[in-house]
């Protein structure tokens, strides 16, 4: 939805980190940034864990056209 709430911004940031991790090994500087982001707020940690959980779940869905 078009909600610009802070909650949505945190979720988008969590998705962003999850995707960056998936795109390849993080550089040391990026990893430090991620750690800082996670340390900054329990909401960040919760959102990131949720993104990771969804990431795991989607990996268990069989492909559509197989």
């Amino acid at each position: 939805m078009a909600s610009d709430s802070g909650e949505d911004a945190v979720w988008q940031a969590a998705l962003d980190w999850s995707m960056r991790m998936h795109d390849g090994d993080l550089e040391d500087a990026e990893r430090a940034q991620l750690h800082a982001w996670l340390a900054a707020s329990p909401n960040h940690r919760e959102a990131f864990q949720e993104a990771e959980r969804l990431w795991t779940l989607t990996g268990l869905v069989p492909p559509k056209d197989e």
Binding site: M21, H22, R31, E52, T56
Partner: peptide
């Protein structure tokens, strides 16, 4: 998928 996920999480 699980192997790659494990690898990434450990790296983090």
């Amino acid at each position: 998928c699980l192997a790659i996920d494990r690898y990434r999480r450990r790296a983090l």
